[in-house]
Write a protein that binds this DNA or RNA. Structure first.
Lengths: 154, 154
DNA sequence: TACAGCGTTCAGAATATTCTGAACGATCCG
DNA sequence: CGGATCGTTCAGAATATTCTGAACGCTGTA
């Protein structure tokens, strides 16, 4: 790809937009910008180019790609004869994102559910806390369904 | 209700748990703790008692309840002969929470979709950005379905 | 009218989060 | 081997977020 700094203003605008929007999804802005650039390009981008084109430090790239890899949004690839790491979107990044979110919600629900164990049966709080736990399980189920929806239409 | 500070350690543990968990959902910890207490109690709690029992400033209570009201999680009620405001959970707080989240996701998707308008037809980015927009619409649809699931089982 | 108690506001403090950049070990190449 | 470049780490800086608490306007009551 390019060794020069970012040129296309639409790409730049898109990258910043994704950076802002994904902040709300538990990612950092830096990670969102990396993902935005890879989404825009649709092809692998090298570690060094990420730093240059996003005008950020290599340290930020390092932790940003680690976060995105953990969530299954991007993957690291090697290219013969090139010592740099390259990164590209995984085939179903959005479904992976939803799966990750669903898993985290399941854990949150389980955390809340432990409160029920300490409660005597018949305590007044029980039905309300059960409803709260149900909120998490319902949300988890529907996020998985959303992931399946996305995968279904490849 | 009580004018004394919090006593039941299970309530206290629950409140802190909800505070932590809801931080991930775009609420502040203080708002989560308020909601946790109201969820535990199942009955209205006065403004003053919230500050006392949560051991926090009245300013925090003021902004916390405002946030929770905006999202439809709690509502403010008046009691004859009492100048204080009282607060209680709305009848379907979790469904309301999901509706709010769905709305916000719809806005995020629309924000991303504007990028498509600036793109010439046939641009290489188009299908990928469309997939991204579809991610938001799918998620929005399934969150609304989750809200209906919750309401369905009243 | 004076007063007491109510909820809100907002500037500044406290805290949490994110980013930077230098140091480092590893690897490749000449 | 020596030097260049790679990605990672982490302490400190920069930034963003949240909380506190005093000041304020409002509203009942005496």
């Amino acid at each position: 790809m390019k060794d020069t700094a970012e040129l296309d203003p639409r790409c730049s605008a898109f990258v910043e937009k994704v950076g802002l929007v994904t902040q709300a999804d538990g990612l950092t802005r830096a990670a969102g910008r990396i993902f935005g650039l890879l989404l825009w390009e649709g092809a692998a981008v090298s570690f060094g180019d990420l730093a240059i084109r996003l005008e950020t430090s290599r340290g930020s790239i390092s932790s940003g790609v680690r976060l995105l890899e953990e969530r299954g949004l991007i993957r690291r690839i090697a290219r013969a004869g090139d010592r740099q790491d390259w990164f590209e979107m995984t085939p179903e990044p959005f479904a992976a994102l939803l799966d990750g979110a669903a898993t985290r919600l399941g854990r949150a629900g389980a955390e809340i559910a432990t409160t029920l164990d300490d409660l005597p049966s018949g305590a007044g709080q029980t039905p309300r806390i059960q409803a709260y736990v149900e909120f998490y399980t319902t949300l988890e189920r529907n996020l998985k369904r959303a992931a399946d929806d996305l995968r279904g239409r490849h």
